[in-house]
């Protein structure tokens, strides 16, 4: 079902889209005493956070609303600048090398819902995941399209390829965005509340897909979620956050 069957073509056979660039530290994501704040905010969003995420592992970040979970992902992708501390992602210094890290990453955003008037089809939306890798006048080739079809199949949206994404349910849209992450064959996968719109069966399925993909692609996965129960069995590390601080790692 996941497209990882023997002799299956497409993404399942490959490793990551970009060459492995592991630094000698063995740490994919390193945050050392990092504090940050949103513009015009009176309080810091993260306070002296230190975290190490090893390559090819699955890390869960959990905690209540306002704990700083999404802020952490935004720092990793360079959308926010640290006030203090050091951030290194995939061997790159952040936020200086943001674009390089983003090219190597796949990001599932928390606010993904699209308006019912959105007419881009599922196929188009998933294909857009490859946009940054394509140069001028370089259309998608058959291998790319095959990978797109594989990703759509992997998240269980087969048959909905030509449907406008706007008319899909929240759960189906979330699966489409996950397919967009998968088609990039990212070295680092960042998932922000990937289960928020899914039913229990969907949560279980998506958890299995995430685990399968990270093993096949040798990707490092960070999942931010209130509800970690569907995926905890695959996790290598669980980080608990509260009020902008890490309060527990197990």
């Amino acid at each position: 079902m996941w497209g990882f069957r023997k002799n299956s073509r497409g993404i399942g056979e490959d490793t990551c889209r970009v060459p492995n660039r592991e630094d000698s530290s063995g740490v994919a994501v390193l945050l050392s005493n990092v504090s940050t704040a949103y513009p015009r905010s009176k309080n810091p969003a993260l306070i002296n956070v230190s975290l190490e995420v090893e390559y090819n592992t699955l890390t869960l970040i959990t905690g209540p609303n306002g704990a700083g979970k999404t802020t952490l992902l935004e720092l990793i992708l360079g959308f926010l600048k640290p006030l203090t501390g050091v951030i290194r992602v995939l061997g790159f210094k952040m936020p200086k090398d943001s674009r390089k890290v983003r090219m190597l990453s796949g990001y599932l955003m928390q606010d993904f819902m699209k308006s019912p008037r959105e007419t881009y089809t599922v196929m188009q939306v998933v294909s857009m995941g490859l946009a940054a890798y394509k140069g001028p006048l370089t259309p998608l080739n058959e291998k790319d399209l095959e990978a797109v079809r594989w990703a759509i199949k992997a998240v269980g949206l087969e048959g909905l390829e030509e449907k406008p994404i706007g008319i899909l349910s929240g759960g189906q849209q979330q699966r489409a965005f996950l397919a967009r992450v998968l088609v990039r064959k990212p070295k680092l996968i960042l998932l922000d509340e990937p289960f928020s719109s899914l039913d229990p069966e969907g949560r279980k399925t998506i958890s299995e897909i995430i685990d399968n993909v990270r093993r096949k692609l040798k990707s490092t996965v960070i999942v931010v979620s209130h509800d970690i129960s569907p995926i905890i069995e695959y996790a290598d590390k669980v980080v608990e956050m509260k009020s902008g601080r890490i309060v527990g790692v197990r």
């Binding site: 992708l77 959308f79 674009r99 390089k100 983003r102 090219m103 990453s105 796949g106 990001y107 955003m109 857009m128 995941g129 946009a131 940054a132 965005f177 990039r184």
Partner: peptide, 8 residues
């Protein structure tokens, strides 16, 4: 934002 997050 998603495009930017993907390196576009």
């Amino acid at each position: 934002k998603l495009a930017e997050a993907e390196g576009v």
